[in-house]
Amino acid sequence: MHISDGVLPVGAALASGAASLAIAAWSARRIQGEELPKVAVVTASFFVASLLHVPLGPTSVHLLIPGLVGVLLGRAAFLAIALGLVLQSLLFQFGGLTALGANALMMGIPALICGWLFQTFKGQARKRQVLVGGLAGGLGTVFSGLILALLLATGGEDFFGVARLALLAHVPVVAIEALVSAFTVSFLLKVKPELLQARDALHRES
């Protein structure tokens, strides 16, 4: 799910670029020093995840994991995703430089939403945390598809048509990502639960 160069109208591309720059700057300011290694590792995972092709019938789909990035990083997720996308577009020509802002919004905003959802609803019980983590991980790609449809609608595409197509194509991805996220959360809960505590969550700030 990448928007290519020249698909969006110039105005929408510029606006989404400016918006994602602003959000990335905000996201970067929220990161604390001790978090940086975690952010770096998750960014690298995000960067590599879209190269893992899962064979599916005649075609293959690849993971996107915005939801998992959001669950793990909270507000730093946007910066991580923007950086991963910059490198992907520079090194692999995934998407294009002019569509970078739109792509960052498409993946970053779901990450922020999913991070917030996870921190808000995770509760205390282990099972519930795993469940919410898996749900948030799966929802990330769903939100990405919706934002993709919204962005393409600015270029005159039919919102519902694009949204249905994008969501249908990504049903297996959503399922796989939900599983991967649930597994990751359950593993981290066992091994290093403090990684899942958002130190920058809104309701913990005081």
């Binding site: 940086l36 960014t43 690298a44 960067f47 991963g84 490198l87």
Partner: peptide, 17 residues
């Protein structure tokens, strides 16, 4: 390219750190 990208990411975060 993949390894290069991972290197870039870790390096950039190293500088930020």
């Amino acid at each position: 390219e993949i390894l290069g990208g991972i290197g870039y990411i870790l390096g950039l975060f190293g500088v930020a750190f």
